[in-house]
Amino acid sequence: MATLKELAAKDELFSGGHRLCSGCGIPPIVRLLLRSAGSPVVATSATGCLEVGTSIYPYTAWRIPWIHSAFENAAATISGIESAYRAFKKKGRIPADKEIKFLALGGDGGTYDIGFQALSGALERGHNFLYVCYDNGAYMNTGIQRSSATPLGSATTTSPAGAKRPGKQEWRKDLTRVVVAHNIPYAAQASPHNWRDLEGKARKAFNVAGPAFMNIISPCPLGWYSKPEDSINAARLAVDTCYWPLYEVENGILRVTYRPKEKKPIADWFKIQGRFKHLFKPENSHLLDETQKRIDAEWQRLLDMDGKAVF
């Protein structure tokens, strides 16, 4: 397990001067990821906050080779890069002892929704890469529209808190489970507030042979209507309320990597975010109750599976 002193001694491969929002949850995730690879990393980002914020010409925050191609194709793009790497290794154009890790990054829009097909295809084909979804629960880059990752009841610009429809009316897609169903060597959920857990998972994910996937919750002050200084705490509460359980599935065995000492009510997480404000009105209490019930049930399901084979 690396200490922060050891991690801080490694090169900073993600520079300041990027244009991501103040208090954005994405950079701490990326900074940890790049330090956990252990080898040079080549990365691609789907269109989204991370891409736009880090690559406004002629400025780039990346000190690794990085490419942005389009919104829905991060997994397909990395497939091509990784295949070129294998071709070059075979032909001796890259020395046999040189190892490169491949990383694809996308937000929830670029991963759960528009990039889902490309992700599924790349996982099935078995490319050796890590896909990381930074899940902030909506299309934040285009101005907070609902995605299939948006929580039930959350107000977005396309699921506003209306009189008849108070926020998003559907439960979110459980993408991590869908990815697990691809039978890849490694899949996990992580959170930036728990850097030790995140870094350890990323190290495993980079080092398995074949595809790996990490779904990482990424607080967004803009779209969550939360205070920038609360971002890391918001991630912590998502985990302590068990809205965002930390777990991994390694070679088919599920392991819950963190159990809150005291499981907090979902309202604790909701109340620091403006996007859930309307759920505290009496007429919307059923949404709060429904959320709590489902979270409890899903957390219990995970606990029941802890240490067991997922299939």
Binding site: L4, K5, L7, A8, A9, E12, F14, S15, G16, G17, H18, L20, C21, S22, G23, C24, G25, I26, P27, P28, R31, L32, P192, H193, W195, P221, K227, P228, E229, S231, I232
Partner: peptide, 28 residues
């Protein structure tokens, strides 16, 4: 480790201050 702007300066394992050229003042 939590800084979104790579703006906490660490030297030889010690926190020595802030890179105010890049710090956006989020307060994390």
């Amino acid at each position: 480790v939590m800084c979104p702007d790579s703006a906490v300066v660490v030297k030889d394992g010690k926190m020595i201050g802030f890179d105010l050229e890049h710090c956006k003042g989020c307060g994390i």
